[in-house]
């Protein structure tokens, strides 16, 4: 699967737009396929890794580190300052959230499965992918595991969507 390379840095203000400005006429990412192709308007996404729910648990320092603690199990570790600024969600992020609700309602998988795949990701994904980037990767993994679609079907659909062009405007004109 052509997952985009992790390019995000902690300083979200000094990154070039991955779309080279082409996204300005778009609402941002439009579907799963474009997300995996790296066509995310990440400049419109104000979500930073430190906003993640995992950081909201346990701000104290633990005196006895546990052997075998998994990276996501952060309660009790030093968290650093907690950003409290508010932000809007990009359209694609709202769609990812809605997709999770639909998948759960249809019985494909539960939030427990969502969490499992998030936790099984490499530790660096917590810093290199945003919250909903990790969500959509997990939703996709769970849907494939549940047999909702195959990787071959996903690949074909991604190619089809990619051929439409990177924006709604180009797709409409095409």
């Amino acid at each position: 699967m052509p997952r985009r390379e992790a390019v995000r840095e902690n300083d979200l203000t000094n990154r070039p737009c991955m779309m080279n400005g082409a996204c300005a006429k778009d609402d941002g990412c439009t579907c799963i396929a474009t997300l995996f192709l790296g066509r995310i308007d990440i400049d419109k996404c104000a979500w930073t890794p430190s906003h993640d729910l995992n950081y909201s648990v346990g701000m104290s320092k633990t005196s006895e580190p546990f052997d075998g603690r998994r990276w996501h199990d952060m309660g009790g570790t030093t968290a650093g300052p907690i950003p409290t600024d508010q932000h809007d969600f990009a359209l694609w992020e709202k769609r990812v959230d809605a997709l999770m609700v639909i998948c759960s309602t249809k019985g494909y998988f539960t939030v427990d499965g969502l969490r499992r795949v998030l936790e099984d990701m490499a530790p660096e994904t917590f810093e290199t992918m945003t919250y909903y980037e990790r969500w959509i990767a997990s939703v996709n993994q769970n849907l494939i595991e549940a047999g909702v679609y195959s990787t071959a079907e996903l690949a074909a659909r991604m190619s089809e969507v990619a051929a439409r062009g990177p924006t709604y405007g180009e797709a409409a004109d095409g």
Partner: peptide, 14 residues
């Protein structure tokens, strides 16, 4: 316990 896999008990309480 510290098993791999998805568990629902935070490490700091084990």
């Amino acid at each position: 316990d510290m098993p791999p896999g998805h568990v629902r008990t935070p490490a700091y309480l084990r």
